[in-house]
């Protein structure tokens, strides 16, 4: 009898408190009937082996408990599509927060260290991703269990709104890298605003005084890129218009680089200690603008081909 009671108790361990006593009572009664039909006396030590075999055939206590009182999953399989969408949107929000955090970190640290910027972005996302997943999963569990999720599972739609067969997905990772590049570029452009005098004077590179107008031009170009990149992060598929804007961005960058290639040097050495590096830096930027323009032309041509397929 002790073994039978241990089995019933083991099942009870996995049962919800409000149903525990009732299910235990019923399970015990059913098992006693089953044992009686098999002529197994649960209180007889001689029948222990037969009782053990019977229980093993019955199944693991946890499975029996699950059959009696099925537990609602954290996320039901029919909610997984919605769950993935919400997690993805949550990640984007986390990422935007991380970029803002990284920007303010650079300002507080009075630094223009790109590696530190990327590290803060990644560590901020890493620090918050666990909490975000717990909150989203707990919300899905509570709403799913109470039946509120069904209305959002398959939102109203019509066949006209389905993406065309030649639809091209917008790459989220490319969008993220575009945002990071634009934010970091804007921070670099405006170091005079947020770096203190000592930190600013310690920089070895700066915009040449006769090229100050480029600070404004590049700010407009990068701000435009940033806004477009953030917009693209909210979209799933390319449209003719969004692809056109994307290509136009590349064309603007190419034009800027070609102009800078033919213009006086944009950046100059500002630290007297590094002044001997000036010819090297000049050569690096002159060839760098041309090389970058060439790479951007290649990418733009590839994007034009994709535009034609839309």
């Amino acid at each position: 009898m002790e073994l039978l009671e241990r089995y019933v108790q083991a099942v009870a361990h996995y049962l919800p408190a409000e149903q525990k006593q009732d299910i235990m009572r019923e399970l015990r009664a059913n098992l006693l009937d089953e044992l009686e039909s098999l002529e197994i006396d649960a209180s007889n030590p001689k029948d222990i082996q037969a009782l053990t075999t019977f229980m093993q055939r019955l199944d693991h206590p946890q499975r029996i408990a699950q059959s009696y009182a099925p537990q609602y999953p954290l996320v039901a399989s029919e909610d997984m599509g919605l769950y993935k969408t919400i997690v993805l949107k949550g990640l984007l929000v986390l990422f935007v927060y991380a970029v803002v955090t990284a920007g303010s970190y650079l300002i507080n640290a009075q630094s223009v260290n790109a590696i530190a910027f990327l590290f803060v972005v990644l560590s901020s996302v890493w620090d918050n991703i666990g909490g975000m997943l717990i909150i989203i999963t707990a919300t899905f569990y509570l709403l799913g269990k109470s039946g509120y999720l069904a209305q959002w599972r398959y939102p109203s739609w019509n066949p006209e709104s389905l993406p065309p067969t030649n639809a091209q997905r917008i790459s989220t990772s490319e969008g993220i890298s575009d945002v990071i590049t634009s934010v970091f570029g804007l921070l670099l452009l405006w170091t005079p605003l947020w770096l203190n005098e000592e930190a600013y004077n310690s920089l070895i590179l700066g915009i040449a005084p006769n090229m100050e107008q480029w600070r404004i031009i590049l700010t407009i170009v990068m701000a435009g890129s940033l806004i477009a990149a953030i917009y693209r992060l909210t979209q799933a598929y390319w449209t003719k218009l969004s692809k056109s804007v994307y290509i136009a961005e590349y064309l603007v960058y190419i034009a800027v680089m070609l102009i800078l290639w033919r213009s006086p040097v944009l950046f100059e050495i500002t630290s007297p200690a590094a002044i001997e590096l000036m010819p090297f830096v000049n050569g690096l930027f002159t060839h760098g603008w041309l090389f970058s323009a060439g790479v951007f032309m290649f990418i733009a041509a590839s994007e034009v081909r994709k535009w034609h397929k839309l």
């Binding site: 019923e26 009937d33 039909s37 059959s67 009696y68």
Partner: peptide, 27 residues
């Protein structure tokens, strides 16, 4: 019917059903 009698009834009719399936199903 109680649990065991129900199982016997169904088994006698030719449908084999084990305890772990039937008893939770009745509930």
């Amino acid at each position: 019917q109680y649990g065991y009698s129900l199982r016997q009834h169904i088994n006698d009719a030719g449908i084999d059903i084990d305890e772990g399936t039937l008893y939770p199903l009745i509930r």
